[in-house]
Amino acid sequence: MRMKTIINIVIIAIIALITLFPLYWLIITSLKSYTEIYANPPYLYPPNPTLQYYIEALYKFYGLKYLTNSLVIAVTNAAISTLASLLAAYAVSRFNFRGKDNLFFTFVSMRMAPPAIFAVAYYYIFCRTLGLRDNILALIILYNVFNIPIAIWLLLSALEAIPKDLDAVAQLEGLSHFKILFRIHVPIIKGTVAVSYLLTFLNAFNEYLFASFITSTEARTITTALQGMITVAGVYWSQMAALGVLSALPGIIIAVIARRYLVTGLTMGMV
Protein backbone atom coordinates (compact mmCIF):
# COMPACT_ATOMS: atom_id res chain seq x y z
CA MET A 1 0.00 0.00 0.00
CA ARG A 2 2.73 2.42 1.05
CA MET A 3 4.84 1.48 -1.94
CA LYS A 4 1.91 2.16 -4.23
CA THR A 5 1.45 5.73 -3.01
CA ILE A 6 5.14 6.43 -3.42
CA ILE A 7 5.08 5.12 -6.98
CA ASN A 8 1.98 7.23 -7.66
CA ILE A 9 3.65 10.35 -6.36
CA VAL A 10 6.76 9.70 -8.44
CA ILE A 11 4.71 9.17 -11.59
CA ILE A 12 2.66 12.31 -10.98
CA ALA A 13 5.86 14.27 -10.33
CA ILE A 14 7.38 13.08 -13.60
CA ILE A 15 4.25 13.99 -15.54
CA ALA A 16 4.14 17.38 -13.86
CA LEU A 17 7.79 17.97 -14.68
CA ILE A 18 7.33 17.03 -18.32
CA THR A 19 4.32 19.31 -18.76
CA LEU A 20 5.48 22.18 -16.62
CA PHE A 21 9.12 22.35 -17.65
CA PRO A 22 8.51 23.96 -21.06
CA LEU A 23 6.30 26.50 -19.37
CA TYR A 24 8.99 27.21 -16.83
CA TRP A 25 11.53 27.57 -19.61
CA LEU A 26 9.24 29.97 -21.42
CA ILE A 27 8.86 32.11 -18.32
CA ILE A 28 12.57 32.31 -17.49
CA THR A 29 13.39 33.01 -21.11
CA SER A 30 11.04 35.98 -21.01
CA LEU A 31 13.04 37.32 -18.07
CA LYS A 32 16.48 36.77 -19.58
CA SER A 33 18.47 38.94 -21.98
CA TYR A 34 19.63 37.80 -25.38
CA THR A 35 23.13 36.94 -24.18
CA GLU A 36 21.83 35.18 -21.11
CA ILE A 37 19.66 33.01 -23.31
CA TYR A 38 22.64 31.92 -25.37
CA ALA A 39 24.88 31.42 -22.34
CA ASN A 40 26.60 28.07 -22.09
CA PRO A 41 25.98 26.26 -19.81
CA PRO A 42 22.39 27.63 -19.79
CA TYR A 43 21.00 29.43 -16.77
CA LEU A 44 18.30 27.42 -15.04
CA TYR A 45 16.97 30.67 -13.59
CA PRO A 46 17.03 34.27 -14.79
CA PRO A 47 20.23 35.84 -13.41
CA ASN A 48 18.96 39.45 -13.74
CA PRO A 49 15.17 39.17 -13.96
CA THR A 50 13.58 42.13 -15.72
CA LEU A 51 10.10 42.99 -17.01
CA GLN A 52 11.66 45.07 -19.75
CA TYR A 53 10.92 42.52 -22.46
CA TYR A 54 7.27 42.38 -21.48
CA ILE A 55 7.00 46.12 -21.91
CA GLU A 56 8.77 45.92 -25.23
CA ALA A 57 6.59 43.01 -26.36
CA LEU A 58 3.43 44.86 -25.45
CA TYR A 59 4.30 48.25 -26.90
CA LYS A 60 7.18 48.01 -29.35
CA PHE A 61 5.93 44.81 -30.91
CA TYR A 62 2.24 45.79 -30.58
CA GLY A 63 1.59 42.83 -28.26
CA LEU A 64 -1.09 44.79 -26.44
CA LYS A 65 -3.00 45.37 -29.62
CA TYR A 66 -2.76 41.74 -30.68
CA LEU A 67 -3.71 40.56 -27.23
CA THR A 68 -6.74 42.84 -27.29
CA ASN A 69 -7.67 41.54 -30.73
CA SER A 70 -7.44 37.96 -29.51
CA LEU A 71 -9.48 38.70 -26.43
CA VAL A 72 -12.18 40.55 -28.33
CA ILE A 73 -12.40 37.76 -30.87
CA ALA A 74 -12.48 35.01 -28.25
CA VAL A 75 -14.94 36.74 -25.91
CA THR A 76 -17.34 37.58 -28.71
CA ASN A 77 -17.04 34.34 -30.59
CA ALA A 78 -17.49 32.24 -27.47
CA ALA A 79 -20.62 34.21 -26.60
CA ILE A 80 -22.05 33.86 -30.09
CA SER A 81 -21.26 30.20 -30.49
CA THR A 82 -22.49 29.28 -27.02
CA LEU A 83 -25.72 31.18 -27.51
CA ALA A 84 -26.32 29.79 -30.98
CA SER A 85 -25.50 26.30 -29.80
CA LEU A 86 -27.86 26.62 -26.88
CA LEU A 87 -30.70 27.42 -29.26
CA ALA A 88 -29.69 24.67 -31.64
CA ALA A 89 -29.28 22.10 -28.90
CA TYR A 90 -32.71 22.99 -27.50
CA ALA A 91 -34.26 22.54 -30.90
CA VAL A 92 -32.56 19.21 -31.48
CA SER A 93 -33.45 18.02 -28.00
CA ARG A 94 -37.05 19.24 -27.84
CA PHE A 95 -38.45 19.33 -31.37
CA ASN A 96 -38.92 16.77 -34.03
CA PHE A 97 -37.97 17.85 -37.47
CA ARG A 98 -36.81 16.30 -40.66
CA GLY A 99 -33.15 15.43 -40.97
CA LYS A 100 -32.56 15.93 -37.28
CA ASP A 101 -30.28 12.92 -36.95
CA ASN A 102 -28.26 13.73 -40.05
CA LEU A 103 -27.82 17.30 -38.95
CA PHE A 104 -25.81 16.24 -36.00
CA PHE A 105 -23.68 13.91 -38.06
CA THR A 106 -22.98 16.72 -40.49
CA PHE A 107 -21.68 18.87 -37.68
CA VAL A 108 -19.50 16.17 -36.29
CA SER A 109 -18.18 14.93 -39.61
CA MET A 110 -16.98 18.40 -40.53
CA ARG A 111 -14.54 18.09 -37.69
CA MET A 112 -13.06 14.94 -39.12
CA ALA A 113 -11.29 16.55 -42.05
CA PRO A 114 -8.07 18.48 -41.43
CA PRO A 115 -9.03 22.18 -41.13
CA ALA A 116 -6.35 23.22 -43.60
CA ILE A 117 -8.32 21.81 -46.51
CA PHE A 118 -10.96 24.46 -45.91
CA ALA A 119 -8.40 27.25 -45.82
CA VAL A 120 -8.64 28.24 -49.45
CA ALA A 121 -12.41 28.30 -49.38
CA TYR A 122 -12.50 30.39 -46.24
CA TYR A 123 -9.92 32.77 -47.57
CA TYR A 124 -12.04 33.29 -50.64
CA ILE A 125 -15.28 33.68 -48.70
CA PHE A 126 -14.02 36.06 -46.06
CA CYS A 127 -11.41 38.09 -47.88
CA ARG A 128 -12.87 38.26 -51.34
CA THR A 129 -16.61 37.80 -51.11
CA LEU A 130 -17.21 39.48 -47.74
CA GLY A 131 -14.30 41.87 -47.96
CA LEU A 132 -13.26 41.15 -44.41
CA ARG A 133 -9.56 40.72 -44.98
CA ASP A 134 -7.59 41.66 -41.88
CA ASN A 135 -10.81 42.28 -39.98
CA ILE A 136 -11.50 40.66 -36.61
CA LEU A 137 -15.12 40.24 -37.67
CA ALA A 138 -13.96 37.56 -40.09
CA LEU A 139 -12.47 35.46 -37.32
CA ILE A 140 -15.43 36.05 -35.00
CA ILE A 141 -17.67 34.58 -37.67
CA LEU A 142 -15.27 31.91 -38.89
CA TYR A 143 -14.56 30.36 -35.51
CA ASN A 144 -18.23 29.46 -35.17
CA VAL A 145 -17.56 26.77 -37.73
CA PHE A 146 -15.64 24.64 -35.30
CA ASN A 147 -16.88 26.06 -32.01
CA ILE A 148 -20.59 25.54 -32.59
CA PRO A 149 -20.38 21.75 -33.09
CA ILE A 150 -18.35 21.38 -29.91
CA ALA A 151 -20.74 23.56 -27.94
CA ILE A 152 -23.81 21.80 -29.34
CA TRP A 153 -22.35 18.44 -28.43
CA LEU A 154 -21.72 19.57 -24.87
CA LEU A 155 -25.01 21.39 -24.36
CA LEU A 156 -27.16 18.80 -26.06
CA SER A 157 -26.25 16.03 -23.68
CA ALA A 158 -26.83 18.35 -20.74
CA LEU A 159 -30.26 19.35 -22.07
CA GLU A 160 -31.15 15.75 -22.79
CA ALA A 161 -30.61 14.99 -19.11
CA ILE A 162 -33.37 17.42 -18.10
CA PRO A 163 -36.67 15.54 -17.81
CA LYS A 164 -39.21 16.49 -20.46
CA ASP A 165 -41.85 16.65 -17.74
CA LEU A 166 -40.16 19.78 -16.47
CA ASP A 167 -40.77 21.47 -19.82
CA ALA A 168 -44.34 20.24 -19.77
CA VAL A 169 -44.96 21.83 -16.39
CA ALA A 170 -43.38 25.05 -17.57
CA GLN A 171 -45.45 25.05 -20.75
CA LEU A 172 -48.60 24.62 -18.73
CA GLU A 173 -47.51 27.50 -16.55
CA GLY A 174 -47.54 29.59 -19.68
CA LEU A 175 -43.87 29.78 -20.60
CA SER A 176 -42.80 30.12 -24.20
CA HIS A 177 -39.95 27.96 -25.49
CA PHE A 178 -37.52 30.85 -25.13
CA LYS A 179 -38.45 31.31 -21.51
CA ILE A 180 -38.27 27.59 -20.85
CA LEU A 181 -34.76 27.51 -22.24
CA PHE A 182 -33.43 30.62 -20.56
CA ARG A 183 -35.33 30.67 -17.28
CA ILE A 184 -35.69 26.96 -16.56
CA HIS A 185 -33.03 25.03 -18.43
CA VAL A 186 -30.07 27.39 -18.37
CA PRO A 187 -30.02 27.67 -14.57
CA ILE A 188 -29.97 23.89 -14.38
CA ILE A 189 -27.15 23.43 -16.87
CA LYS A 190 -25.25 26.61 -16.04
CA GLY A 191 -22.12 24.56 -15.31
CA THR A 192 -22.13 23.11 -18.81
CA VAL A 193 -22.91 26.49 -20.33
CA ALA A 194 -19.87 27.87 -18.53
CA VAL A 195 -17.71 25.00 -19.75
CA SER A 196 -18.98 25.50 -23.26
CA TYR A 197 -18.13 29.20 -23.06
CA LEU A 198 -14.65 28.56 -21.70
CA LEU A 199 -13.79 25.85 -24.21
CA THR A 200 -14.97 27.86 -27.17
CA PHE A 201 -13.14 30.87 -25.76
CA LEU A 202 -9.89 28.90 -25.59
CA ASN A 203 -10.40 27.46 -29.05
CA ALA A 204 -10.83 30.92 -30.47
CA PHE A 205 -8.03 32.43 -28.44
CA ASN A 206 -5.54 29.73 -29.37
CA GLU A 207 -6.46 29.39 -33.03
CA TYR A 208 -3.52 29.92 -35.33
CA LEU A 209 -4.07 28.55 -38.81
CA PHE A 210 -7.00 30.62 -40.06
CA ALA A 211 -5.89 33.72 -38.20
CA SER A 212 -2.54 33.56 -39.97
CA PHE A 213 -3.90 33.95 -43.46
CA ILE A 214 -6.99 36.07 -42.87
CA THR A 215 -5.30 38.74 -40.78
CA SER A 216 -2.10 40.68 -41.41
CA THR A 217 -1.59 43.80 -39.29
CA GLU A 218 -4.78 45.39 -37.96
CA ALA A 219 -6.60 42.25 -36.94
CA ARG A 220 -3.52 40.23 -36.11
CA THR A 221 -4.02 37.90 -33.15
CA ILE A 222 -1.50 37.05 -30.50
CA THR A 223 -0.83 33.54 -31.76
CA THR A 224 0.07 34.78 -35.21
CA ALA A 225 1.99 37.73 -33.80
CA LEU A 226 4.46 35.36 -32.20
CA GLN A 227 5.56 34.20 -35.57
CA GLY A 228 5.99 37.78 -36.67
CA MET A 229 8.78 38.15 -34.18
CA ILE A 230 11.06 35.96 -36.18
CA THR A 231 12.42 38.68 -38.43
CA VAL A 232 15.23 39.00 -40.93
CA ALA A 233 17.07 41.07 -38.35
CA GLY A 234 17.01 38.14 -35.93
CA VAL A 235 14.73 36.42 -33.44
CA TYR A 236 13.63 38.46 -30.45
CA TRP A 237 13.59 35.52 -28.09
CA SER A 238 12.94 37.37 -24.85
CA GLN A 239 10.10 39.45 -26.24
CA MET A 240 8.70 36.45 -27.99
CA ALA A 241 8.76 34.46 -24.78
CA ALA A 242 7.11 37.34 -22.94
CA LEU A 243 4.32 37.41 -25.49
CA GLY A 244 4.15 33.62 -25.27
CA VAL A 245 3.63 33.82 -21.53
CA LEU A 246 0.88 36.39 -22.00
CA SER A 247 -0.86 34.28 -24.60
CA ALA A 248 -0.72 31.24 -22.37
CA LEU A 249 -2.26 33.14 -19.47
CA PRO A 250 -5.96 32.85 -20.35
CA GLY A 251 -5.67 29.09 -20.70
CA ILE A 252 -3.86 28.77 -17.41
CA ILE A 253 -6.25 31.07 -15.57
CA ILE A 254 -9.28 29.26 -16.96
CA ALA A 255 -7.82 25.88 -16.12
CA VAL A 256 -7.15 26.93 -12.55
CA ILE A 257 -10.47 28.70 -11.89
CA ALA A 258 -12.74 26.31 -13.70
CA ARG A 259 -10.88 23.08 -13.03
CA ARG A 260 -13.81 21.45 -11.27
CA TYR A 261 -16.38 22.73 -13.78
CA LEU A 262 -14.33 21.57 -16.74
CA VAL A 263 -14.06 18.04 -15.49
CA THR A 264 -17.72 17.63 -14.54
CA GLY A 265 -18.89 19.51 -17.62
CA LEU A 266 -16.78 17.42 -19.94
CA THR A 267 -17.64 14.10 -18.39
CA MET A 268 -21.31 15.11 -18.47
CA GLY A 269 -20.96 15.78 -22.15
CA MET A 270 -19.48 12.38 -22.71
CA VAL A 271 -22.42 10.49 -21.23
Partner: peptide
Protein backbone atom coordinates in the same frame (compact mmCIF):
# COMPACT_ATOMS: atom_id res chain seq x y z
CA UNK B 1 -50.83 24.20 -23.49
CA UNK B 2 -49.78 27.74 -22.52
CA UNK B 3 -53.32 28.95 -23.19
CA UNK B 4 -55.36 26.25 -21.48
CA UNK B 5 -54.88 27.18 -17.83
CA UNK B 6 -54.38 23.56 -16.89
CA UNK B 7 -52.05 22.49 -14.08
CA UNK B 8 -50.46 19.08 -14.02
CA UNK B 9 -48.47 17.18 -11.43
CA UNK B 10 -46.33 14.42 -12.85
CA UNK B 11 -45.45 10.98 -11.60
CA UNK B 12 -41.80 11.86 -11.18
CA UNK B 13 -41.65 15.05 -9.17
CA UNK B 14 -39.86 17.85 -10.97
CA UNK B 15 -38.66 21.10 -9.49
CA UNK B 16 -36.87 24.05 -11.02
CA UNK B 17 -33.32 24.93 -10.08
CA UNK B 18 -34.28 27.72 -7.68
CA UNK B 19 -35.30 28.06 -4.06
CA UNK B 20 -38.37 26.27 -2.76
CA UNK B 21 -40.11 29.62 -2.37
CA UNK B 22 -39.24 30.74 -5.90
CA UNK B 23 -40.43 27.44 -7.30
CA UNK B 24 -43.88 27.94 -5.83
CA UNK B 25 -43.97 31.65 -6.64
CA UNK B 26 -42.75 31.15 -10.20
CA UNK B 27 -46.09 30.61 -11.97
CA UNK B 28 -47.45 33.75 -10.33
CA UNK B 29 -44.39 35.84 -11.17
CA UNK B 30 -44.70 34.81 -14.80
Amino acid sequence: PQKRNVAMVFQFPVAYDMSVYDNIAFPLRI
